[in-house]
Design a protein around this nucleic acid. Sequence first.
RNA 1: GGAGGGAUGGCCGAGUGGACUAUGGCGACGGUCUUGAAAACCGUUGUGGGGGCAACCUCACCGGGGGUUCGAAUCCCUCUCCCUCCGCCA
Length: 422
Amino acid sequence: MLDLNFIREKPDQLKEALIKLNTDAPIDEILALDEERRTLLTEVEALRHQRNVTSEKIGRMEKGEERQALIAEMRQVGERIKALDGPVSDVEELLREAMLQVPNMPHETVPVGKDDSENVVVRTEGELRQFDFEPLPHWDLGPVLGIIDFERGVKLSGTRFYVLKGLGARLQRALIAWMLDLHVNEQGYTEIYPPFVVKRECMVGAAQLPKFEANIYHDVEDDFWFIGTAEVPLTNLHRDEILDADQLPLYYVAYSPCFRREKFSAGKDTRGIKRGHQFDKVEMYKFATTENSYEELEKMVDNAEDVCRRLGIPYRVVQMCTGDLGFAAAKKYDVEMWAPGCGEWLEVSSCSNCEDFQARRANIRYRPETGAKPEFVHTLNGSGLALPRTLIAVMENYQQADGSIVIPEVLRPYMGGIETIS
RNA sequence: GGAGGGAUGGCCGAGUGGACUAUGGCGACGGUCUUGAAAACCGUUGUGGGGGCAACCUCACCGGGGGUUCGAAUCCCUCUCCCUCCGCCA
């Protein structure tokens, strides 16, 4: 959510930004509702003041005609207040709904572009492996090795589900455990095990709702919302709190399964395990002060890159242009691993600085110093990393001519010393 | 799932229809005293909205929502969460 004062004072600046973002938002509606709200408030608050003052006087008066007259008068005032209360809450609700539709503003360093074709490759690291045979895609490698079972996944749950089996399941578990240990032991993150279903307000706080409702699984009976990323519970960990400045920055990391309906990518990436309705992810998250959140973003991207480097897999870092920024981010980098079998760069991480956009929605503040007024924190999120795609990259980069897969050095302690899958 | 008890400010805790700004204590911050500190004493201490150049004025908030009343932390309805006991259970 943006600051209403900002929208009120600089609507043209916001409209310019919306053009760069290649999107739209009900700015004029917000301005009109804000105007109406303030007019109504002035009126109803004056009436309340009158009632407060007079009621207090009534309390101190002797019983009698004069007192009865005032009571009758205040009954009238009360009815006028009641008549205004409805419109006030209607306008406030409409204003809130409209405010939730407005995307975040891009940071000044974000390149302008219309869509993902204008994203900028910032750097490419690691040597692409030269194969003396034709590298296979994971959807061929997996079934042959008996570590991915597509048919039975579909039998159980339908399209976009698969089963990992034997050393395939073990390899994913090893990746998760190793990544968590890396973030916790060497990068300073605190491990969190969060709920995987949350209340509606958490989804609003993390900016998943109301805009992306069609993409979220929802249990109607208990009103539980299935998280599409651990970013959701991590954002809400400090919802409605005022943090001390000396606590910041806070670093959290959480493993979670992620559930996505994928309504917006029907028919895309249907082959393999690249895009499923359920996948695992290790997520990094930071609560930072307004001063250093951009330094923290660069550090977070490096934390994600570190996972790639240690796995020995070539990757590149891509900066999103304005047209591909998404709803909540002010600045965003993707980290993409090279997958030689399917022949594409796979997005394994997405690192964003949301500035105070989520913090306003979730009401997360900090006090810069004792006695100072609370300010909204800056929130950052980044995958560290998404599992199925990392699994793809490991399988395809470490495949051998005989169809076996060598386990990367760093994972072997997590695989009980196993060196190859064959 | 059944029965009972609760939810008040950063924390503890009083408050069953009207008084000044919701007692009091703890904590925190400022001050006096002191070479310095502690103790003692004095003072300050929530969040959000509206108006105003400003000092300031004003509205709302006692778990959430609704109701009664001239007036609600207080009375009524409802929901959520927590605690105790019973039942069930990985």
